[in-house]
Write a protein that binds this DNA or RNA. Sequence first.
DNA 1: TTTTGAATTTAGCTTAAACTAAAAATTTAT
DNA 2: ATAAATTTTTAGTTTAAGCTAAATTCAAAA
Lengths: 217, 217
Amino acid sequence: MLSQSIEDYIKAIYLLQQNKESVTTNDVAGRMGVSAASATNMVKKLAEMNLAQHVSYKGVRLTDSGIKVALEILRHHRLLELYLHQALGYSWDKVHDEAEHLEHHISEEFEDRINSLLGNPQYDPHGAPIPSRDGFIPAISHDSLAHAEPAFEYIIQRVDDERAEFLRYIGELGLFPNVRFHLIAKEPFKGPLTLMIGNTTKIIGYESAEKLFILRP
Amino acid sequence: MLSQSIEDYIKAIYLLQQNKESVTTNDVAGRMGVSAASATNMVKKLAEMNLAQHVSYKGVRLTDSGIKVALEILRHHRLLELYLHQALGYSWDKVHDEAEHLEHHISEEFEDRINSLLGNPQYDPHGAPIPSRDGFIPAISHDSLAHAEPAFEYIIQRVDDERAEFLRYIGELGLFPNVRFHLIAKEPFKGPLTLMIGNTTKIIGYESAEKLFILRP
DNA sequence: TTTTGAATTTAGCTTAAACTAAAAATTTAT
DNA sequence: ATAAATTTTTAGTTTAAGCTAAATTCAAAA
């Protein structure tokens, strides 16, 4: 059984390597909120365990077994988020923190039972894909609202930011996954965007729009 | 926040001092599965933290704050057991192990939500009392089936043993909490007992009968 | 009452994961 | 191309929880 700490590092590296080609030990330290030295030590340990490859001064990358571990944790996390939301009535801005703790402590039986109760779901309450038991990840859009074209209709697929405050702000605007809207206008130079949901208009900042992934209906 | 380890020691001491007037560090070591030296060290630490009183070579006893902590953990544990059983369909011999892990990691919000879903329950699936949020413990019988009188009718109130194998054995006999039966016969010298549930007879060993707490209907 | 044996504590060591400070390597700028 | 700045690693310390072995205290038997 891996320690909680090791699991957290693996998850951190996995999420970092989604967005960056190369992940440095400093990136890891930043995300984990530990010193650079601590990150280096742990990364070397992961390499020892064949969960990651590490080249000094260059960076880290998870091995296939490392990725497998990461996906298992991510599955726990996202299933839990959805379960807390659907079955226990948690608001979507609170599910992350609770899932963050519980993800390391549920058994496979627990995982299977909530999965069945939820009907083998594909996405969590923020629209993030839930890896399947065998490590397959549902497709997800990577087009952000920030780069959408005015005059078209879109659907929110995912809100890619887990900070509670941000989620409450987005939620108040009504921008949940699966919500349809029209992009009315878009200011140049990273300016705000104007949307129409139903028949009310909403204005959203460029920075926030970058966190919203969208699809054409 | 207390570490998991400290919480486990506190719970162990609490449960030990229910049955014995005086709890020794060795009792603690036994229940926790650690060396006597480790238990002594931790007990001294608990005393430092004012969670227990410790007199060298004599024994340990939880202080009022220690008891408060113990009851909070026990509440988590027993609510979780019931929740796993009722909401997730766990069999009663599996709830203990899962709850044992989760009890340290759920938030107060989680506790409150499952408590409400379950309708503020008083007893877990084994009939053990669930401490209330403010530390009150529902009454519980301490009459064991081993000392019951033949010819009377009884109700199982509690099965006081959490070993999965034992629970499966008892479950197969149909001896769940709230089940009614007649005590038909009782062999002397710690011999087996004969019960009638509905219109079938069951025989149960004295050792097992000691773990079953009963009530007059 | 003394001795012996069991229970308990003390002392000192181990491991994991963090830290700081110093050294080394790499990258950037002159 | 060299020096300066930044990043990364190494070295050594800290804390928590465990362990073993040795010492101490208590209780029971002679």
